[in-house]
Design a protein around this nucleic acid. Structure first.
Length: 593
RNA sequence: GGGGGUGUAGCUCAGUUGGUUAGAGCGCCGGCCUGUCACGCCGGAGGCCGCGAGUUCGAGUCUCGUCACUCCCGCCA
């Protein structure tokens, strides 16, 4: 007989009755009836009830063992009587009568209970992560993550992509987030950086002549965390393809991500059709964000015309000074109490907006509310048509400079949707947001810079850069958004030195800057680079959505806390003077604290 | 770096207007119990009320500061 087990804790069934079985696992739960003792033995796969009574000479060993003790039990598989069957367990029709036992590893008193559904503070859960991971929900999430990654990998391989590894110790990149630095012993005073993404490497893979590349790639960025963003590190499905147009990338990525969501989302609806392609400008108008949640049916409209030159001077004066008015519909809200409108108004004020105008169209389509009387019939009618309003609907107005109006109209759209319960439930709604602007202007300094990343190909190529207002040039740059969450970012890359030089020139950088910052890639483009493009879906966020959790730590094996500390490993940690000396480093922390 | 929330037993939480010995459930320890599977019943241990000042005859409760955790803003090409 095997030293540890003949079966897992989920595998014994009625068919095994009468066999001698050996199981190893953790004591999930003890139920002590004095002369009769039940043990639920647990492993990754399930739970098997084991039973022993006082007549046995090993009773005391088991009676003394604490929950989470690891033990190996051997005994006959017994059929349970009909009234003692437990339908919640796959093994609920049988139990193992313990005839011998070996304690493989005793457990001390537990800082957090494994059994049960209690919540525990996150710092405790992180410190004792191995206990937390034994609990059902964490185990299920981590197994889901493993299956999702395995499925993604298989789908990519089936689609003709090849998986490569790119360096972890690499050069610091001047753009983007702060780098994690690693001192070089052999090159004193110099540092490696951990890659923020394998961006340049994957482009070099294309230049190297490989046609389709992917990698489940760790990415390191030294930025503060959020609920949906680990401080430090996260994983992307990094992919890149040669000789492709934008639609080729979409047609490669859509079935992989859509397929994974179909495979692992139990009772959620998923759009089987081609995902909508929403231009950035359209997203900012209709949804007030470049991360539109399509489960929300409300659409924002521009109603600047309807207020321009009206007797509602608060808005019309602002319009004269360059503000615009955006309107958010609130269907079937005319009968709601006054507090519904006041609360929304109070809320936007707390968020920093001057206030929120609104008009209520009652059941007879009469316009009510503080600003209705300032608008004549034609203006009101125009608003109704513009927003497709019916009697009984209301509409909110944000009057501000474009950027602020977009932001707040988007926030109000979300809020109204939540308040009215309009969010489509149990569904994943995907879209591509396309046609991002290539450049943006700093509001304060007026400086023009890349809006997304400098590697994207401008639409219209060199000619566009030479002839158009930079702020009107779009990039072959795209995101996947699912339920209002940015899942993926990608682009058709700029593979031409002449276009790169021009694009950087517009952003105020000379050729030397390109060489200094992206010398390896820029040099590579001298020797024949294929047109290429790709994308990088975030693995953690995909798993979060599928697991139904808003917190990334729930789908991460060993996460750091918000201060970027690993409470279990106690990282980051002090290092010895010897270690520092070897690296030619001296600490000087007083100026920072 | 800024703002919000939380901090009482190992854990989840209650604690009235500032007033006697700070409570409950889970867990732990002991006892009883041969069919439970959230087993049940009886008993017990366990408290720097995050920490430090202050107001007060008196502070878990009020004020200020500070620390920890968390959420958000900044940041995340």
């Amino acid at each position: 007989m095997h030293q540890f087990r003949t079966h897992t804790c989920a595998s014994l069934t009625i068919k095994d009755v009468g066999k001698i079985a050996r199981l190893s696992g953790w004591i999930n739960r003890k139920r002590d009836h004095g002369n009769l003792l039940f043990i639920d033995l647990r492993d990754q796969f399930g739970i098997t009830q084991c039973v022993i009574d006082t007549s046995s000479d090993i009773f005391k060993i088991i009676d003394d063992a604490r929950p989470e003790t690891v033990m190996c039990v051997t005994g006959k598989v017994l059929q349970r009587s009909s009234e003692t069957i437990n339908n919640k367990l796959s093994t609920g029709e049988i139990e193992v009568n313990i005839e011998s036992v070996e304690v493989l590893s005793p457990a001390d008193l537990l800082p957090i209970q494994v059994y049960g559904k209690n919540d525990y503070p996150e710092d405790l859960r992180l410190k004792y992560r191995y206990l937390d991971l034994r609990r059902d929900s964490m185990r299920e999430n981590i197994i889901l993550r493993s299956k999702v990654i395995s499925s993604i990998r298989q789908r990519m391989i089936d689609a003709g992509f090849m998986e490569f590894q790119t360096p972890i110790l690499t050069a610091s990149s001047p753009e983007g987030a702060r780098d994690f630095l690693v001192p070089s012993r052999l090159n004193p005073g110099k540092f490696y950086a951990l890659p923020q993404a394998p961006q340049i490497f994957k482009q070099l893979v294309m230049v190297s002549g490989f046609d389709k590349y992917f990698q489940i790639a760790p990415c390191f960025r030294d930025e503060d965390g959020r609920a949906d963003r680990s401080p430090g590190e996260f994983y992307q499905l990094d992919l890149e393809m040669a000789f492709v147009e934008q639609e080729d990338v979409f047609n490669a990525v859509e079935p992989v991500i859509g397929g994974v969501f179909s495979e692992f989302s139990k009772d959620f609806k998923i759009d089987k059709n081609k995902w909508p392609r929403i231009p950035y400008a359209e997203a900012m108008l209709n949804y007030g964000t470049d991360k539109p949640d399509l489960r929300n049916p409300l659409l924002i409209r521009d109603v600047t015309d309807s207020f321009s030159g009206s007797s509602f001077s608060l808005f019309s004066k602002n319009i004269d000074n360059g503000s615009i008015v955006r309107a958010i519909p609130a269907p079937n809200s005319s009968e709601l109490p006054r507090s519904f409108f006041d609360k929304l108004n109070d809320w936007v004020r707390e968020e920093g907006l001057g206030g929120l105008g609104y008009i209520i169209f009652d059941k007879d389509s009469n316009a009510k509310g503080p600003i209705a009387k300032h608008l004549d019939k034609d203006r009101l009618e125009k608003i109704k048509i513009n927003l497709n309003l019916s009697p009984g609907d209301s509409v909110f107005f944000v009057c501000e400079k474009k950027q602020i109006a977009e932001k707040f109209s988007g926030m109000v759209r979300d809020k109204v949707c939540n308040e009215l319960g309009l969010l489509e439930s149990k569904t994943f709604r995907f879209c591509w947001v396309i046609d991002y602007p290539m450049f943006e202007q700093d509001v304060v300094t007026g400086h023009i810079d890349f809006s997304h990343n400098p590697f994207s190909m401008p639409q219209g190529g060199l000619e566009a850069l030479n002839s158009l207002d930079p702020l009107t040039i779009l990039a072959h740059q795209y995101d996947i958004v699912c339920n209002g969450i940015e899942l993926c970012s990608g682009a058709i890359r700029n593979h031409r030195r002449d276009i790169m030089i021009k694009a950087f020139e517009i952003a105020g950088y000379d050729e030397k800057t390109i060489k200094d910052r992206f010398g390896g890639l820029f040099e590579a483009f001298r020797y024949g680079a294929p047109p290429h493009g790709g994308a990088a879906p975030g693995i953690d966020r995909i798993v979060m959505l599928l697991a139904g959790t808003p917190n990334i730590r729930e789908v991460t094996l060993f996460p750091m806390n918000n201060q970027a500390q690993d409470l279990m490993m106690q990282a980051p940690n002090d290092v010895s003077d010897k270690h520092l000396k070897e690296l030619a480093l001296k600490l000087d922390i007083k100026d920072i604290k």
